[in-house]
Design a protein around this nucleic acid. Structure first.
Lengths: 241, 241
DNA sequence: CGTCCTGTTGAGGTGGGTCAACATTCGTGG
DNA sequence: CCACGAATGTTGACCCACCTCAACAGGACG
């Protein structure tokens, strides 16, 4: 495994690409220095796992780059992806003893990890960090609840349309100047068809068929398996509801 | 509407039935007095709504007694219940501008409400409260993610079995001495068939058929529409997976 | 060039949705 | 207390969206 050893020669947090969006956003310079001291960075390859469902929760982390999946399994082995983590998202379960889901990198990824005990101590001593984490957790809960509507009440077409729209938005950095309202936009899916199926609660065949249908209908183009071009965003939004 | 005016003649929080489970659990006596001053109690009838999806978030609340539902609707009018709130659960969206879901009482209910701005100010001044809220939100996020597995990957039978087990547990106060491991246990459903369907992402007919099937198979009994007796808990757990 | 892996497409089956008739319970007012 | 109508729940018949199984296609990589 290429777990890089902690390197404190420069202050990572200060320079961090996601600094103004992550939980450390509101901290003061001195606090950031401290946080930097207890964290270490780690690079992950696609498929590499950093948290295991049910294991003792020893790590928490911040996503700096890449996409990761949070997932769990049914007794009969079917997987359900519980969520995707993008840059600035928080991973792990502070203030709880076991990690409730597995976390695996989908793309090359870069995370900032903390020993849970270190992180918790720091959080308790710095209410501002804890407040930021609370806001983030509340937002994540909102997002997760919206996803329940998708799983419980949408058909395959609506699910895929919603997924493509959400993915295109989350892959576009928030500070990006181009709003791209109606412009065709292209991106690389961080997931295989199987993983998309696991996110949407569908089978791989159904996902594939819906992709083909949307392409035939001219809503999207599929230059390669992993590339998607949204041609008719408004139409997709109609489908998604 | 029978909105009771705030009544500060006695200190509600100190005497509160859910005091040791709710977010105020770790507060000191003096803090509780303060919190008590900014909150007011309110009784709700079944069907009465206290938060509306999309409206400006002006209230947050703690459930003291009863069961409430959090829900949202699709464009085509189908409802999806996002969660149920039981005593000691927290309602509303602090640190956000709009309430992301509607909240309606399912049974006679009793809540302790705060103006969001008051609550937020209090929380920021009392990190212990904020910490408690964070822990609660993290747990709720875990619970919600487990529910996603149910919605995305379970069939009707598994969904209903899981629902009955969870409901029986949440209706049994945690401090109840009887663990009732294998004993037959009875409880009153706080939801109509339609609402159960909305929780599970099913239709009312499918819910009804699954109830009938479980009764025929001797797993449960249904003395009245609202009463359920679990006869074979182990078998239900097998079904739920 | 062959093997492996991922994705696509087709054919057919089925779980649960839809529509409809009926049953039961509840609420209201006589 | 009963009578009536409305609301809620049950059951049956049918259908369709999605799942299952299976064959095949296209890259990636040795």
């Amino acid at each position: 495994m290429d777990t890089n050893p902690p390197d404190h020669s420069i202050n990572f947090c200060q320079a961090c690409a996601i600094r103004n969006r992550a939980i450390c956003a509101d901290l003061e310079s001195a606090e950031i220095d401290l946080l930097n001291k207890i964290g270490s960075r780690r690079r992950l390859k696609p498929g590499e796992q950093i948290l295991w469902e049910g294991e003792e929760a020893v790590l928490v982390a911040n996503v700096i780059e890449g996409v990761l999946k949070l997932s769990t399994q049914t007794v009969d082995g079917k997987e359900q992806i519980l969520g995707l983590a993008y840059p600035s998202d928080f991973l792990g379960r502070p203030f709880g003893s076991t990690t409730p889901y597995g976390v695996e990198a989908l793309s090359d990824a870069h995370v900032c990890t903390f020993r849970r005990s270190d992180f918790e101590r720091f959080a308790r001593e710095h209410p501002r960090l804890e407040h930021k984490l609370l806001e983030r957790t509340l937002s994540e809960l909102d997002r997760t609840r919206r996803w329940m509507l998708l799983l419980g009440r949408m058909n395959a077409e609506q699910k895929l349309a919603s997924f493509l729209l959400e993915t295109s938005e989350r892959l576009t950095p928030a500070d990006c100047a181009f709003t791209m309202d109606e412009a065709p936009m292209q991106f690389t899916l961080p997931l295989t068809r199987q993983q998309i199926a696991d996110v949407l609660g569908l089978t791989i065949e159904t996902v594939s068929r819906q992709f083909s249908k949307m392409k035939k209908d001219g809503l999207i183009d599929l230059p390669t398996r992993r590339e998607v071009t949204i041609l008719e965003r408004a139409a997709l939004e109609d489908l998604a509801g």
